[in-house]
Write a protein that binds this DNA or RNA. Structure first.
Lengths: 271, 271
DNA sequence: AATTATGTTCCAAATAATGGAACTTTCTAT
DNA sequence: ATAGAAAGTTCCATTATTTGGAACATAATT
């Protein structure tokens, strides 16, 4: 299946075994540069990519020429702005996001806390939208971000919508890493949490990904079940108490259901 | 609406002559799908890309496998979310954007109107950040967007920082298109506007790109001059009168200068 | 100025992309 | 429901591109 690897955890060797030929190697390079802490020199990339010098040199020039990478004035490579342009189109044209938007705003206004929309992709959740109350400084920070499914509210909610078989298959590919002292520690804990989520209809994240951050989330699945997503309301633990999360749960679930409905109505006629 | 596109001005044939080998062809496909109005079927892409069926089929599968494209449930292709993830990293790690952020906020608070930060890339301006007052509905809309340099405040401001020779060279590559009745109609008008911008130190966009939208912008150039950018304050013509634009100009210029300074301080030590 | 580290160019050999055609599946009109 | 057409997928000998070692050039360091 589509083994997506844990973009966080990997020694990023360039040759992977997904068979996508030349493209695969180039995308791995992009990934390598994107994940780095800062601009990388030719030699940095050379050592982490085990490609021969000549080869790497040409690959990088091609990526630069296409705007996928950029070179700073010290000749170091960083991820290119062209990707921003592609992404902005991807985002603007995303139907699901557009359908969900008004519901996210409503949820934000009611709770006063931050609302997230994320979709499940392999072992990760990719955040598609974020609505904040007071415009905080880190405006777009979260959009496009990929986080492990097993330690985020949205991720666990989405997972809970899978049937047993699919769920087991997915989880077997997860790599459990301890982000905080509350992070779930393995398949067993995750499965039992998911059972509870199924029973309740909503998921909690109690400082499992980031210390001091809690959320309540609900799953969204498309009719055919080939898209799984989730909505969540998130806030700092000192303000967002378990009682509040509990109280908001029905609202979050309702928002998720409305998004599902709207999506169904929009997609239904076609097909 | 903000009709963007026209990014290069091409009939989007896939084989272009930039020599980037296989990558070039694949990126052209991405571009084709990204620019389309909606999801494309295999055949749609086939006809607009003049690739043989077998070839195209494999290219698309590779792009999909890498997450750069996605396939909807009707088998149609659309731009993939993985690009969002790359972009979010590109954005989060962008030093220039980070340095500029506080200045943009200050400018926004003072004027109450929307502030943009954009960088010049070839004939286009790519918007790197946007700060709005009341959180409007279209949050992420502008970021990553590429617009022609010659009809945007940020673009013209950035162009004004080029020396004569470079400027002439760039302009020769522009394709002038009439977005509104106020859009500059060709190199001559642009050059004379740029002369004025140089004399004043700031640029105006008086409904040149979008009807009813005006802005005042100032150029930002790095010491070595290899990065050109601009800041602008933008708003609807009925509210943002020429007098206001005039009054804000010094602030915008000051913000641009501060960003330049901060950038110099941050970059200086290295090198 | 000499030495080393870093980046660039070259080209025969290896590998991956190509594209025509045969094949399968999905629509469409009767 | 069925035939026919359109859309999508697979196959494989041919062709073109990528590969990678090594020589060459340039910048940094002593």
């Amino acid at each position: 299946m589509n083994e997506d690897m844990g973009s966080e955890g990997g020694k990023n060797k360039v040759r992977r075994d997904r068979e996508t030929g030349t493209l695969g190697k180039l995308v791995s390079l992009l990934d390598l540069v994107a994940l780095a802490d800062g601009p990388m020199r030719f030699t940095d990339i050379l050592t982490s990519s085990d490609q021969p010098r000549g080869t790497l040199h040409r690959q990088l020039s091609h990526l630069v020429e296409e705007g996928l990478l950029e070179v700073d004035r010290d000749g170091r490579y960083l991820i290119g702005l062209r990707l921003l342009t592609f992404a902005s189109r991807s985002w603007a044209r995303n139907e699901f996001r557009a359908v969900a938007e008004p519901h996210l705003h409503r949820l934000q206004e009611y709770t006063g806390e931050t609302v997230h929309l994320g979709v499940l992709r392999g072992a990760e959740v990719i955040y598609l939208d974020k609505v904040e109350g007071r415009q905080s400084v880190r405006m777009y920070s979260q959009i496009g971000n990929a986080s492990p499914a097993y330690c985020t509210g949205v991720g666990k909610a989405a997972l809970s919508a899978l049937d047993e078989a699919e769920l087991a298959a997915r989880i077997s590919g997860f790599e459990f890493r301890l982000y905080t002292e509350h992070t779930l520690r393995g398949p067993a804990e995750l499965l039992s949490d998911i059972a509870a989520i199924r029973a309740r209809g909503h998921a909690f994240d109690l400082e499992e990904h980031e210390s001091g951050i809690c959320c309540v989330a609900a799953p969204i699945r498309s009719d055919d079940g080939d898209m799984l997503a989730g909505v969540s309301v998130t806030g700092p633990a000192y303000r967002v108490t378990p009682q509040k999360l509990q109280a908001w749960a029905p609202l979050v679930v309702a928002a998720a259901d409305s998004i599902m409905m709207d999506m169904r109505n929009r997609m239904g006629p076609k097909r």
